[in-house]
Amino acid sequence: MDSRHIKDYFSQDGVVCDYARAVLNVGLWESEKIVFGRFFKTGDRLLELGCGAGRIAHNMYALGYKNIVSTDFSENMISVAKAISEDFGYAVDYRVEDATSLSFESSSFNGAIFGFNGLMQIPKRGRRRVAMSEIFRVLKKESFFAFTTHDREAPRNAKYWEHEREKWKDGTRHLKLDEFGDICYESEHGELFIHSPTCAEVEEDMSSCGFQKIFSKKRSEIACEPQCVREFSDECIFWVYKKV
């Protein structure tokens, strides 16, 4: 999968509008409030990656997190996020950034967030590791990095992955998929890519970048989400790692 395809998808007007509506209609998940509140202080300088139209940053700002630098590689997403922020009088610092090549100085943030499984929308495992390393670089020591992923080994997905494995064996897999665990499906806005990792894969990659695992738990085990959140996104795993 070409990363330009990912950027083109998230630059479409329809996709940007969906993410803009989520800023107010969905807001912070209950599980996000719990996890972020546990590991981040309101005075921390936080870096958000893959912010979309600002769902997380906007609502964290309202809770008192006033020092957030919120980034996305889609110029359209950032433009809309800025407009929403200005409408509310919020001083969120929105910037266009590529998670695999951050412009920030080393050790300049007290924490980082990559919400809504965004880390796994970076194609190719090697590039995801580059992003992890970049996040490690810009974090101060003892700082936390929180993100979410799907779980390839979840029992409810077993039949799907059994079927996918057969496709990889007989050569009928989707031609744009680079690695087993990749998913490419037709959404209402076109072809959408995401990687669904195993827990072992996440732990191996994060460890290789120097992070230490602090916390991992399914979203449903953290909080009971309202209907609007469950319609917006399905089950995932929350991960929190520490730069040691």
Rank of each mutant, 00 (worst) to 15 (best):
D72T: 10
I56P: 03
G64R: 10
A131D: 06
T148A: 04
R128T: 14
V69K: 06
G43F: 06
L102R: 01
R45Q: 00
P155H: 12
R38C: 05
S74Y: 07
T100A: 01
F36S: 15
S143N: 14
P123N: 04
Y94E: 09
A131N: 07
F73G: 00
F136D: 05
E86H: 13
E86V: 14
S70F: 03
L49F: 05
T71A: 02
D98Q: 08
N59G: 08
E142N: 15
F145W: 07
G126D: 13
S106H: 03
V138L: 02
I34K: 15
A81K: 09
A57G: 12
I122H: 00
G118A: 13
K82C: 15
W29N: 07
E30G: 07
Y94W: 06
N157D: 14
R129Y: 07
S143Q: 13
V138H: 00
D93L: 07
K66D: 06
S74W: 08
N76Q: 14
R55N: 15
Y61D: 03
R152Q: 05
I135R: 01
S31Q: 06
K82W: 11
F114A: 06
S101N: 04
A99F: 10
A20L: 11
S101R: 02
Y61L: 04
Y61H: 06
G115L: 04
S79D: 11
